[in-house]
């Protein structure tokens, strides 16, 4: 089926997310804008205005009530999805690289950038489940990441038991989400190759990480054991797991413009790649973007996926029936 092009952003997309029902897509971009779209037809539902810098991350809670965003203006903000009203603003000494709700939506984490004199921190806030309630200023947990290099991605596991982080040196670490203690650290990716994305399976018992080392790894949230490896031929920026019963992972990436010797799109490998989750074999590619894919996301209902590109476009693809036949 023909993809739907969401055009409205003026600069590179940094993250795109589906609502739990799959009916909305939320996108953030370096152009300071947060947009919400109808996934069915690509119409814009609204914008969330207030940020003063490039945005790095967005997430929506499971009830599609709250939207969290964070970016280079050193703030993390909470919005009411329906009205676009800003409900809360937290300020930090450095930019926010990543935001993510827990699976019950009651916790929100934010990862701060490491900069001279500032370590990467992970802040966890309790979210009051009422749009009119006053949200807390103080985090319930703060993890200072001093033993490991810069945190690039983070998220809550099933039952809010662990926080899993990915680091710029290829390390993946597991923390106790109650106490903030580090439980384990593993090195599934090539040393020095940044972990660029971490996305969960529907039940958050396993996750996939993508890396600049051109691989994506499926890992057990409890043991951090690598279950499957997907090898691509280009540095990866993002990886998503399609909801069961389909067994695919979608990888996105591409050579950044400055590393490509020619400008031809086929050289950059700006394609979404589908791999079989269990057999690890590439099963197909979808082209279309004119620049690297910065993020890929799958609708929780499994009916479509979307990709956000360096080219400023979000492309939404609804799967054709044959896709569901092959398992």
């Amino acid at each position: 089926m023909r993809p739907i092009l969401l055009s409205g952003h003026e600069r590179a997309l940094t993250q795109v997310k589906f609502s739990k029902e799959g009916d909305f897509i939320f996108s953030v971009s370096k152009d300071h804008n947060v947009c919400a779209w109808y996934s069915a037809n690509g119409e814009r539902f609204g914008m969330y205005k207030g940020h003063q810098g490039a945005l790095w991350s967005v997430d929506v809670d499971p009830t599609t009530t709250f939207l969290a965003t964070g970016g280079a203006d050193n703030t993390m903000r909470l919005w009411e999805v329906k009205t676009g009203k800003q409900l809360k603003q937290w300020e930090f000494p450095t930019s926010i690289r990543r935001v993510e709700f827990s699976e019950d939506g009651k916790l929100l984490l934010g990862v701060t950038e490491k900069r001279t004199g500032q370590l990467s921190n992970i802040y966890v806030y309790d979210i009051a489940q009422d749009v009119n309630a006053e949200q807390s200023d103080e985090p319930t947990l703060r993890i200072v990441v001093d033993e490991l290099p810069r945190v690039t991605v983070a998220g809550f596991s099933y039952l809010n038991r662990y926080i899993i982080t990915g680091h710029e040196n290829g390390c993946v670490a597991q923390w106790d989400a109650k106490t903030g203690e580090m439980i384990a650290d593993e090195y599934p990716h090539e040393d020095g190759a940044s972990v660029t994305d971490l996305q969960w399976s529907a039940d958050r018992t396993y996750f996939i990480t993508s890396s600049k080392d051109k691989t994506a790894k499926l890992q057990d949230a409890r043991t951090l054991k690598v279950l499957h490896t997907y090898v691509a031929d280009t540095p990866l920026n993002s990886a998503a797991i399609t909801p069961e019963p389909t067994n695919y992972v979608i990888l996105g990436g591409g050579q950044a413009a400055m590393d490509v010797t020619t400008t031809s799109a086929r050289q950059g490998k700006f394609e979404a790649r589908f791999y079989h989750k269990i057999f690890e074999e590439e099963v197909g590619r979808v082209r279309g973007h004119f620049g690297p894919l910065n993020y890929v996301a799958v609708s929780p209902d499994g009916k479509c996926y979307c990709s956000g590109g360096e080219d400023g476009y979000v492309r939404v693809h609804h799967f054709d029936p044959p896709y569901f036949d092959f398992k």
């Binding site: 039952l159 039940d203 018992t205 269990i278």
Partner: peptide, 19 residues
């Protein structure tokens, strides 16, 4: 492939049960 699939399904079954 059959082996991989079996391993995966067994792992999933166990994880889901525990969950």
């Amino acid at each position: 492939r059959r082996r991989q699939l079996e391993e995966w399904l067994a792992w999933r079954e166990q994880v889901v049960e525990e969950l």
